[in-house]
Amino acid sequence: MKRYELIEHTADLGLKAYGKNLSEAFANAAFGMFSVIAELDAVKEVESRRVEIEEDDAESLLFEWLNSLLYYFDVETLIFKRFDILEFGEGKLRADCRGEKYDPARHRLKTGVKSATYHMLEVDKEKNRVQVIFDV
């Protein structure tokens, strides 16, 4: 099954992510976002960060999940490629995110993502599908 696909948007860029369950769709959305930012093949799984989020609803959870990962990229230049979701429930997400700090000698960065947005943001709990537009 396809993990994610990109959506055309005039000024920005979005993606749809899929999964066997919603938590996998969230993980695939994160993977898709980092695939936009960098070539992930050369990124090793040597660093890990525990991310914990609590929000009122599934949409805010997705927004905050993706933006929290961007925070790590900005502050520590961490490029994540693997997302093990440890806990996923109503308004709660706990995950171990693995990847590597950006090394200009080995990694190729592609497109900067400023933020996930709420515009056209969708969490489809029936189809285990999420959609998000980024400000890039």
Binding site: S60, E64, Y71, Y118, H119, L121
Partner: peptide
């Protein structure tokens, strides 16, 4: 970017209190 993220969330949580509805979150 972070200031915008932080406050969009604040606004989303506060809108019901002020009785505001918008066509796009």
């Amino acid at each position: 970017h972070q200031v915008a993220d932080d406050y969009i969330k604040v606004m989303m949580q506060s809108m019901p209190k002020y009785g505001i509805e918008v066509p796009d979150r």
